[in-house]
Computed example of a mutant assay.
Amino acid sequence: MAWFYLVIGGLMEVLWAIGLKYSEGFTQPLISTLTIMGIATSFYFFAKALKYLPVGTAYAIFTGLGAAGTAVIGMMFLNESVSLIKMFFIFLLIASIVGLKLNSREA
């Protein structure tokens, strides 16, 4: 269950990172509120996962999922540049996340 919490927290990180962009420096009340709710939800699930997983592994996976997911969403939907080298490093990041998962143990 801890891994489920960690993945949900990482996916929520993608949502709030994109929300930060569209909140325009927290000047858009609705988007800002949704972004803050996303941050709280993301950290709630991350904290739940930390009850069972080592903090170093969990944090690396949490931030890696958020970074990879945000980069992919940016390229797919936000007109951010796409290049083979960028895709290679996102793939490398995801492979590293999988490697960390395969080499860790729940408490």
Rank of each mutant, 00 (worst) to 15 (best):
I39P: 05
I18H: 06
A40S: 10
I36V: 13
M87Q: 09
I90Y: 09
M37R: 01
V98T: 08
M12G: 02
M87S: 12
M75I: 13
I61Y: 04
Y5I: 01
A17W: 01
T57Y: 08
F88A: 11
I94K: 10
M76G: 07
V14I: 14
T63R: 02
I85G: 00
Y52S: 07
K21G: 07
I73G: 05
I8M: 06
A71E: 10
I36Y: 02
F4P: 03
I90D: 06
G66H: 07
L53G: 01
M37L: 14
G64K: 07
L15F: 10
I73Q: 05
S23Y: 06
L92D: 04
A67N: 11
T57P: 04
M1T: 04
S81N: 10
L65Q: 02
I73A: 14
V7D: 00
E24K: 14
Y52V: 03
W16V: 02
V14Q: 03
A67R: 03
F43K: 05
L15A: 11
I31C: 04
L92H: 05
T33C: 08
L34I: 09
G99E: 05
A40W: 11
L102G: 02
M87L: 10
G19K: 00
L102R: 11
V82I: 12
I73H: 05
M75R: 05
